[in-house]
Amino acid sequence: MEFIVDNVDKTMDIGVQIGKLANSGDIICLIGDLGTGKTHITKGIAKGLGIDEHITSPTFGIVNEYNGRHKLYHFDVYRVNDPDEIEAIGFDEYIFSDAVSIIEWANYIEELIPVEHLSITIDKLPEIGENYRKITVNFNGNKYDYVKEIKI
């Protein structure tokens, strides 16, 4: 599925819809360049999960934890130089738990991502306008069929 958005509110709205539909144990992979909106999607997902805390990207801490309808683990693996680093923090214990796991820069650790996951790629569209983004949502595994309900 593809969505073209022209502002942060629409980006976050897609996240809110995903968060409202997300289930225990979901793994959501975010891919996109710096400044494309990965953290805004995450803020929306958190809001959809009923999390009222201020969401920030855990760039230096690798993972932040939040409590809502489901626990949320928010990973940022941008600064991970070797997949062994992320494994050392118990990555498998996090993503194979009952929490919803969001992984920013998931393409950096592809070999550690389970086959069954939701993937969201965000691309800038400067040829249309400065704030335009193409959000591509793909899922691997039937448990993520709920994304078919997303509308903007």
Rank of each mutant, 00 (worst) to 15 (best):
Y73G: 00
Y73L: 01
H74W: 00
F75P: 04
F75L: 06
F75N: 06
F75R: 03
V77N: 04
V77Y: 06
Y78S: 11
R79H: 10
R79S: 10
R79P: 03
R79C: 09
R79E: 12
V80P: 03
V80Y: 07
N81V: 14
N81P: 07
N81E: 15
D82A: 04
P83M: 05
P83A: 08
P83N: 08
P83Y: 07
P83G: 05
D84M: 09
D84F: 06
E85K: 01
E85P: 01
E85I: 06
E85D: 14
I86V: 15
E87P: 07
E87C: 09
E87A: 11
E87W: 08
A88Q: 14
A88I: 14
A88R: 12
A88E: 15
I89Q: 12
I89S: 11
I89D: 13
I89C: 13
G90R: 04
G90W: 06
G90I: 10
F91L: 08
D92K: 03
D92P: 00
E93I: 03
E93S: 07
Y94F: 15
Y94V: 09
Y94C: 09
Y94E: 12
I95Q: 05
I95G: 06
I95L: 05
F96N: 10
F96Y: 14
F96C: 05
S97G: 08
D98W: 02
D98M: 00
D98Q: 03
D98T: 03
D98V: 01
A99T: 10
A99G: 12
V100F: 02
V100M: 03
S101F: 00
S101W: 01
S101P: 00
I102E: 11
I102G: 07
I102C: 09
I102T: 12
I103Q: 13
E104C: 07
E104G: 06
W105P: 02
W105Y: 09
W105C: 04
A106S: 11
A106Y: 04
N107F: 02
N107W: 02
Y108R: 15
Y108P: 04
Y108C: 10
Y108N: 15
I109E: 13
E110M: 11
E110N: 14
E110D: 15
E110G: 08
E111L: 07
E111R: 10
L112P: 00
L112N: 03
L112R: 01
I113F: 08
I113K: 05
I113P: 04
I113V: 14
P114Q: 13
P114V: 13
P114I: 12
P114M: 12
P114W: 11
V115Y: 14
V115T: 14
V115D: 14
V115I: 13
E116F: 00
H117N: 15
H117P: 09
H117I: 12
L118D: 14
L118V: 13
L118Q: 13
I120T: 13
I120N: 11
T121F: 06
T121H: 07
